[in-house]
Design a protein around this nucleic acid. Structure first.
Length: 201
DNA sequence: GAGTAGATCCTCT
DNA sequence: GAGGATCTACTCA
């Protein structure tokens, strides 16, 4: 179990990084309670030229300022007043690339995830979809700008790899407002994995 | 099983 | 003052 180094995040090809995150393990360790899950779905947001991104056209606000920071930190924000969405900021300073983690497969701390989400039992809805991932792992907007190499929040590699033919791409979800950019194949997911959002298997 | 409405609040205009 | 990188529950068939 090695934490991904900063050099992993500070590359210029956000699509490559997103693909590289597939199969990695997202870990939170709040107050000694460890929960983790393997990443099986994510979406890339490609900087100022991407209309679906909060940083489209170089927009810079108090909320998305984090995206302009150096790669290797978290960007968390509230959507629809209910859902906390967890992103990984990538690339160098002033280049607002980010990757939205949309789904993970629970590994440790499932009991705790059930408690946090209020679900009666562990099924494929536990960590399916970005809102649920954050809820199950206890990630909130207050964790925005948190470094991904900290003790409480990090992404690790346990040596596991998905096969090339298991990883598929598609258009991103819920970004219809972005016009033609909504059609870009910036979403990565594991074929047939029940935790992947969209259609159930 | 498919389609739709409602929740709910922070952020930007 | 409007709307959003969503989820769930409920209706209707």
């Amino acid at each position: 179990m090695k934490r991904l180094p900063l050099s992993f995040y500070r590359r210029d090809n956000v699509l490559q990084i997103a693909a590289g995150l597939m199969g990695k393990i997202l870990v939170t360790n709040w107050e000694g309670i460890i929960t983790s899950g393997r990443i099986v779905e994510c979406e890339a947001y490609n900087g100022i030229i991407d209309k679906a991104s909060h940083a489209a056209g170089g927009r810079r606000t108090a909320r998305n300022e984090v995206m302009y920071a150096e790669g290797g930190i978290a960007y968390v924000y509230l959507c629809y007043g209910i859902h906390h969405l967890f992103n990984v900021v990538t690339n160098e300073k002033d280049i607002p690339h980010a990757i939205l983690i949309r789904a993970v497969e629970p590994i440790t701390g499932i009991e705790e995830m059930l408690k946090r989400t209020g679900k009666p039992k562990a099924d494929h809805t536990l960590t399916r979809g970005p809102g649920n991932v954050s809820k199950a792992l206890g990630i909130r907007t207050t964790h925005s700008r948190y470094p991904l190499l900290s003790k409480e929040l990090y992404i690790a590699d346990d040596g596991f790899r998905f096969g090339k033919n298991q990883i598929a791409t598609s258009a991103r979800i819920g970004v219809d407002y972005a016009g033609t950019d909504a059609l870009l194949p910036y979403r990565f997911y594991i074929k047939g994995n029940p935790f992947v959002s969209g259609k159930p298997k």
